[in-house]
């Protein structure tokens, strides 16, 4: 196990370097400089700005400086918001995104997995049809549609729930539903098919032949096996929940990281774009790592490494 963790840790660091490098070079490949905006700035101002942000250094030096920054969590100043660093924006925005992501993940695990299990165990009964129909529709509707519909129905038409911000528990309902909708449906489908497949396995028959009650057969023998593929999916999913919420944040006007990310895209604030991207990626890679380790505990076949 120890060896496995170390190997995974090393590959995680390599991935991060890779990600940071790609991001750096992509951003430096943008035609024109970061200050080439709609309004032409005087030459001298650009000169001064370039100097201030070390943009006239040779590329390799900028690269090394940047990588040093990445590994010391100093992601540099924002180009467009004077006096603000990327770190400031992340510190301001991430808690909102994380809270939202946490509740969405909770919803997925607490609702999606049980729904899938029930659907599989009640195969071809109304419970199964209900879950299957909801899940099928769920994976076909993009998050912004769920979000917009939610605002339209519950905020505009019924006036029950607020439509923007993130101050009370009522504010969470809409964004969490919009954010978790697709993955919830997907997890329910995945769990269902996984449980159905596991229930057909020979070792389930063995467990029944031992005279174990059906509940033990399901909980002990079926679920642990059935949840292995679900757990594999959860890693990238949790990361996506925490980071991929920019659409939902935009719709519900939540001041999370996604908001800064989207703003940096439209305002071409390259340092913020770079910084948030790397932060997102680092977070995502870490989550996948954590889930992979957890996965190693569930499935003994992983133990020996490869």
């Amino acid at each position: 196990m120890g060896k496995y963790i170390i190997r995974r840790l090393i590959s995680m660091i390599i991935t991060l370097v890779f990600v940071a490098s790609i991001t750096f070079f992509l951003m430096h490949a943008v035609p024109g400089g970061p200050f080439q905006s709609e309004k032409a700035l005087p030459e001298a101002v650009i000169q001064a700005l370039n100097e201030k942000y070390h943009l006239d250094d040779p590329l390799w030096k900028q690269y090394l400086d940047y990588m040093k920054g990445v590994f010391t969590f100093q992601l540099g100043p924002s180009f467009k918001r004077v006096g603000t660093t990327v770190n400031d924006l992340i510190i301001a925005g991430f808690p909102y995104s994380a809270k939202l992501g946490f509740f969405a993940t909770l919803a997925i695990v607490a609702l999606g997995i049980p729904a899938g299990i029930i659907s599989a165990l009640k195969s071809n009964k109304w419970q199964d049809y209900l879950v299957t129909i909801l899940a099928t529709v769920g994976v076909a509707v993009p998050s912004f549609v769920i979000g917009a519909l939610f605002i339209y129905v519950f905020s505009s038409k019924l006036g029950w729930l607020p439509s923007f911000g993130l101050t009370s528990w009522k504010h969470y309902i809409g964004p969490v539903i919009a954010l978790s909708g697709f993955s919830l449906a997907f997890v329910a489908r995945l769990t269902r098919s996984s449980v159905l497949e596991v229930m057909q396995q020979d070792y389930i028959r063995t467990a029944r032949a031992k005279g174990l009650p059906e509940i033990v057969v399901i909980v002990k023998h079926a679920l642990k096996n059935a949840l292995i593929p679900v757990v594999t999916y959860l890693g990238p999913m949790i990361a996506a929940m925490m980071t991929g919420s920019f659409i939902v944040e935009k719709i519900f006007a939540i001041p999370g990281m996604g908001k800064y990310f989207v703003e940096s895209v439209s305002s071409r604030d390259y340092t913020v774009l770079m910084g948030t991207t790397i932060f997102y990626a680092a977070f995502s890679i870490t989550m996948i790592f954590v889930v992979d380790i957890a996965y190693g505990f569930i499935d003994p076949r992983i133990k020996l490494g490869d």
Binding site: D202, Y203, R205, T206, I228, D299, P300
Partner: peptide, 11 residues
């Protein structure tokens, strides 16, 4: 049962 490879629970 027939197949001992699949008749035991792997976990």
């Amino acid at each position: 049962f027939q197949d001992p490879m699949t008749s035991l629970n792997p976990v």
